[in-house]
Design a binder for these strands. Structure first.
Length: 592
RNA sequence: GCACCCGUAGCUCAAUGGAUAGAGCACCAGACUACGAAUCUGGGGGUUGGAGGUUCGAGUCCUUCCGGGUGCGCCA
């Protein structure tokens, strides 16, 4: 586990408080925080300890702050501690303690920032795109956010399982099968037109993209003409769905999943496990979940009131099987069964969640598109009911991505018909740029993905800016003969005294805290912002060396100072790599 | 009608309930005989959509209104 200087000084503070006020309740202590002040002139860290404890201890915060500051001055890490404002205590750290963090980083390398192992295990479900076609940019954001979030949670010390839920049981995969069957008939050489075929099938022809052509051909290769009937008018026509629908559906879903897995691999996303909705249904998990809820009196037959305002045209009152989700904070109860007796999507997803709970996860995290936002409460209700409130469910929503080029929105894709595919995007700008850029916004904010900017090599492009900082670090280290981290970790560091050097070290030393906070908030974009700040600190130091040559890393006549600065550069590179690894972005060695 | 998300500098966006709300772009003024100028330095720019409330302290939490988005009984 990495040494988090903020957590460490917070521990010192708690210890001091206990000594000062033996009666202080744990609850109050839990609200004590240690954080960097916004204004750097206040020092390295500030704590609210006297503010949150003063009240319960019936002691004026400024007075407690003064006593606490006096106690903290005795800590070996602390240069100065002073009460400030309404009851803060500001700390300035000893510079040798700050500098010493460089050696800490070098001993841990890319592993720096790793949090202590946390109890329990987390299931992160993401992507979960319907297996009805190639992945598009909308899926892409969820894939990157989910993958980075899983990486972040692991970095923070959680045990993480990365899961993909295949929606292969509904009407949409049926429509997909009909569409694949059309390509099959075409492969056989039918003279039927697309519109004639669309008239024949329920719901019309929904998936018209070219990507199903190879599936039709593969069906012909494996089944010959056995799935069709000869037709005097068209040559080949549709046989009874009983004869072909199930095998064609299975075949097509398998083909789509193979394609999706390739897309994910191209994006560097790898799941630990794929769960099939259809398989859960076959295994009777839905009935099991229903019985479990029923045994708690949470299921009943009843009718729901119609939505207020505009009434749907075909509204009729209907009795349904309902789950009492309202008891768990939902807005209304929710139906579990369709009129044909099969489960609603919600019911199947309840089964999915029961399956997770049974596998022993303590926390569930989902990444969903924002259009599923209205679905969050009912699912949380279900998880609470199924687990006896033992298991938590957090949902991270991702907003729409607008892909822009030359200032214009990009929409069409030749292959898929109506949307820009993930493959198009990766081919255009590369996997690393896609991943990094997708994490430069909070996930629930809409995002413009500017194809021109993302490949641009300038300050405006954070992908480049961060990679460039790493490349510069590597350039210096290569020039110095690539000393090992072990040897640099032994370097005496006391020559690192410039404010720009110490600022960079402080930034580096905040990485464990960033990991912890970003993981707790389920906000992987914070890693991207941290790396941007880190790169900025490094570029600043570099540039100071241009004007003041005594600040350059390599000083021919001062081997000790050179070693110290190489250690700082190596530590910077290690932390950049550590952050990029969480994001799933490959660091570059050079950018020539 | 109801629920959820969003509203922060001209633009794109940050800010675990903390002190004087920050970056980048754009704008203005500067720095290359280079450890990589693909970079950096300085400057002007704000009633955090409005109004109440909780708190020692609110961009953040609560109420309400305005504006934008998403969804709202057998689509997933």
């Amino acid at each position: 586990m990495s040494h988090d200087i903020f957590a460490h000084l917070r521990d010192r503070t708690i210890t001091a408080l206990r000594a000062l006020l033996p009666e202080v309740p744990e609850e109050a202590l839990s609200r004590v925080i240690m954080e960097p002040p916004r204004d750097a002139s206040h020092g390295d860290m500030a704590t609210n300890a006297a503010l949150v404890v003063g009240k319960v201890a019936k002691m004026a915060p400024p007075k407690l702050a003064a006593e606490l500051a006096a106690a903290l001055k005795d800590c070996p890490e602390v240069e100065e501690a002073a009460p400030a404002g309404p009851g803060f205590v500001n700390l300035r750290l000893r510079e040798d303690y700050v500098r010493g963090q460089v050696a800490v980083v070098l001993r841990e390398g890319e592993g720096y920032g790793q949090g202590a192992a946390k109890p329990g295990s987390v299931n992160v479900e993401y992507v979960s795109a319907n297996p009805t076609g190639p992945m598009h940019v909308g899926h892409c954001r969820g894939a990157v956010v989910g993958d980075a979030l899983a990486g972040l949670l692991a970095k923070a010390g959680h045990r993480v399982t990365r899961e993909y839920y295949i929606n292969d049981a509904g009407a949409q995969v049926q429509a997909l099968a009909y569409a694949a069957y059309w390509r099959y008939l075409q492969a056989l050489g039918t003279r039927m037109t697309e519109e004639e075929y669309a008239q024949l099938i329920p719901g019309g022809l929904q998936y018209r993209g070219e990507y199903l052509i190879p599936v039709g051909q593969a069906l012909m290769a494996s089944h010959g003409s056995s799935l069709a009937v000869e037709d005097p008018v068209h040559g080949w026509g549709m046989s009874g769905p009983d004869l072909w629908l199930a095998p064609v559906r299975a075949f097509t879903v398998a083909a789509m999943m193979a394609e999706i897995r390739e897309d994910l691999a191209a994006l560097g996303v790898q799941h630990d496990i794929f769960i099939s909705e259809a398989q859960l249904v076959r295994d009777g998990v839905l009935e099991k979940a229903e019985a479990l809820l029923d045994s708690q009196g949470l299921i009943y037959r009843g009718t729901l009131p119609p939505p207020k305002g505009k009434l749907p045209e075909d509204w009729e009152e209907r009795e349904q099987t309902l789950f009492r989700s309202e008891q768990f904070g939902d807005d209304t109860d929710r139906p579990l069964r369709k009129s044909d007796g099969s489960g609603t999507y919600f019911a199947n997803d309840i089964a999915n969640h029961l399956h997770k709970i049974e596998r022993g996860f303590d926390a569930l995290v989902h990444v969903w598109g924002a259009d599923h936002g209205g679905y969050v409460k009912r699912m949380q209700a279900a998880v609470a009911a199924l687990s006896g409130k033992r298991v938590s469910l957090d949902v991270v929503l991702t907003q729409i991505v607008h892909v822009m080029k030359d200032g214009q929105p990009v929409r069409m894709s030749k292959r898929a018909g109506s949307y820009i595919t993930l493959r198009d995007l990766i081919d255009e700008v590369g996997k690393d740029a896609v991943r990094f850029t997708m994490l430069t916004r909070k996930s629930d904010a809409q995002m413009e993905f500017d194809l021109d900017l993302v490949v641009q090599q300038s300050r405006d492009n954070p992908v480049f800016y961060v990679q460039y900082a790493h490349a510069r670090c590597r350039s210096v280290l290569r020039g110095a003969g690539d000393p090992s981290l072990e040897s640099l970790a032994e370097a005496p560091l006391d020559s690192l005294t410039d404010p720009a050097e110490l600022g960079l070290i402080r930034r580096i030393a905040s990485w464990p805290r960033v990991v912890e906070a970003a993981a707790a908030a389920r906000e992987p974009h914070r890693v991207a912002f941290f790396l941007n700040d880190l790169a900025s600190d490094f570029h600043l130091l570099w540039n100071k060396g241009k004007e003041d040559t005594t600040l350059r890393f390599i000083q021919a006549d001062q081997p000790a100072a050179t070693q110290a600065r190489l250690a700082l550069v190596a530590a910077t590179a290690a932390v950049v790599r550590s952050g990029l690894r969480v994001m799933g972005v490959t660091p570059v060695e050079e950018m020539r």
